[in-house]
Design a protein around this nucleic acid. Structure first.
Length: 424
RNA sequence: GGGGGGAUACCAAAGCGGCCAACUGGGGCAGACUGUAAAUCUGUUGACUUAUGUCUUCGCAGGUUCGAAUCCUGCUCCCCCCA
């Protein structure tokens, strides 16, 4: 059995860990949990570090527990937030939870010896009335202790509601409940959760004199200082309806060399030796971007599947590879469909396809593709316009004769600027 | 309150009666190179079915002139100096 803490350590996934955690986990098969907010109907790659923590935990023989914050999600964690959070509608929370659950099944084994499980803290908070809470939980933690937490301290100037203030107690009680009822001995989380987790450890110690542990992962940063997991389009989601497999794949392919070295350890399950070999060959031939490819392939396949990965790869080949007209002509329909998720689409009506080439690309498409005919002409003169991977050299191109699958045209301005025209 | 300077395209900044759709730099777009990178070099950068052509544009509104970004009048806004 692998040493969980050592495993995370070489992968650079530990920010803080309570003393003797490693020893405890080596000697005991136990359970550990992470709380997830059901604030969205999908996980995003910002959650991935946490998920991978649980994956390693399970691989080390322990039982991962996913705690859906059905109750806490209704309150809002002040950590890292500068403003009071909006409450979420209860129905939405339940709906979100169901969708998130499916996503976890791609990472964790929910069957067998050390199966993963999903719990919702609503089950124990629902019928927990205020007075009992104050008597059995509130009694053990002083306000002074709570005020000392950064998450609270940072909000004293701007104001914090009692509801958010009490968040750490609620989360602390989660830990206590799981410790008491589910043999959960450790809680994981991002580094911003350290304070909240320790409140749980403290509660367990004060109420029952029990032993428990905490481990947090570092905030994932990018070498250029930008926020990890964000693109121009916003979050990168695991749900293919929110982020297409192609875009998901592209996110990882575009990671910088420096970040790739870091990310491959965190987001893939490759062994140390393999990663070292890959990193070495990457450094020898950086233009091949071996790490980015390995990273993108493994994660995309896990989150989506082999087939969708292949489509994402073919799509990328068309858009960014050295593909020529022939490659484009031989494309299968599923890659074509994927293209429509990859690039902006403009729809035109069937009868419009026979319109004049220049009118079609300007007026008829509401100047979405080209804002003027001059711009279009200029681009053609600069040798920058391609349709279906074929350079357009003059302006009497017959769009209608070049439709793919009777409805698609791939228009390309320069190298990377694509528009997909769909005839309907 | 008194005196002076300014407003030009995405930004900065020249132009001060015709050769101005407007120098130049940045940015944008495209081409070459490349790793879907960085740097570099080149072209392009108001609109019009592509024109040694037409139209619109140099704070706003008028005027002078064959002709105005450029001169005059008024207005709006900005900056500086003195009080």
């Amino acid at each position: 059995m692998k040493n969980f803490v050592d495993e995370l350590k070489w992968r650079g996934m530990i920010h803080d860990v309570t003393p003797s955690t490693s020893e405890f986990l080596q000697k005991n098969k136990t359970s550990g949990y992470i709380g997830f907010d059901p604030t969205a109907d999908s996980l995003h790659i910002g959650n991935l570090v946490q998920i991978m923590t649980l994956v390693h935990f399970q691989k080390s023989g322990h039982k991962p527990v996913i705690l859906i914050g059905g109750a806490t999600g209704m309150i809002g964690d002040p950590s890292g937030k500068s403003k009071e959070r909006k409450f979420l509608d209860e129905k939405i929370i339940i709906d979100n939870q169901n969708k998130i659950q499916v996503q976890f099944e791609k990472f964790l084994n929910f069957k067998g010896d050390n199966s993963a499980s999903i719990l919702n803290n609503k089950t124990w908070f629902e019928n927990f009335n205020l007075l009992s809470f104050l008597r059995s939980v509130g009694k053990h933690i002083s306000v002074n202790y709570m005020m000392a937490k950064d998450s609270v301290k940072n909000r004293l100037e701007t104001g914090i509601s009692f509801t958010e203030f009490s968040y750490q107690l609620i989360q602390g009680y989660d830990f206590y409940w799981l410790w008491k009822n589910k043999n959960v001995k450790i809680q994981f989380g991002g580094s911003d959760q350290w304070g909240n987790i320790l409140t749980g450890n403290e509660l367990i110690r004060r109420i029952d004199g029990g032993e428990s542990f905490a481990l947090t992962t570092p905030l994932i940063t990018k070498s250029d200082g930008g926020k990890f997991g964000k693109t121009e389009d916003g979050n990168v989601w695991l749900d293919e309806k929110k982020t297409s497999p192609y875009k998901f794949y592209q996110f990882w392919i575009n990671v910088s060399d420096e970040d790739a070295k870091k990310f491959i350890k965190i987001f893939t399950l490759k062994e140390k030796e393999e990663i070292e070999t890959l990193t070495k060959s990457h450094e020898k031939e950086p233009h091949l971007r071996i790490l980015q490819n390995a990273l993108a392939e493994e994660i995309t396949e896990r989150v989506h599947d082999k087939q969708k990965l292949e489509i994402a790869k073919s799509t990328s080949q068309i858009l960014f590879g050295k593909s020529k007209k022939d490659d484009f002509d031989n494309l299968k329909e599923d890659v074509m469909n994927s293209l429509s998720t990859a690039v902006p689409c403009v729809k035109i009506k069937k009868e419009e396809i026979n319109s004049d080439f220049k009118n079609l690309l300007t007026e008829i498409t509401n100047f979405e593709i080209f804002s003027s005919k001059s711009e279009l002409i200029r681009l053609i003169k600069n040798n920058g316009l391609s349709i279906n991977k074929e350079k357009i050299l003059n302006d009497d191109y017959q769009l209608s004769k070049n439709l793919k699958f009777d409805k698609y045209l791939l228009l390309q301005k320069g190298k990377k600027n694509y528009t997909f025209i769909i005839v309907e």
